[in-house]
Amino acid sequence: MSKVKIESEKCKGCYLCIEVCPKKCLEVSKEFNKKGYHPVEFVNDKECTGCGFCYQICPEVCIEVYK
């Protein structure tokens, strides 16, 4: 089992992480962050393999991966 932690206040909503996640573990949050973006949220800790693709593509470096 693996998981990722997202620092939502830093997320600018490019959603490239959602595109590269092979297990569809990331979604757009309904909440707003202080910058006014809908940040990404982690929704699926059953399937996350800790591959780190989301970390690799995140331009804000606001994702941490745990395995």
Binding site: K12, V65, K67
Partner: peptide, 26 residues
């Protein structure tokens, strides 16, 4: 669970000013 990937030491904690999705951050 161990942390396997996180912000490298050679980056400060300051958030950069690049546009959403910009390659500069990567």
């Amino acid at each position: 669970m161990n942390k396997i990937l996180s912000r490298p030491e050679s980056l400060t904690l300051i958030q950069h000013s690049y546009c959403p999705g910009c390659g500069h951050g990567i």
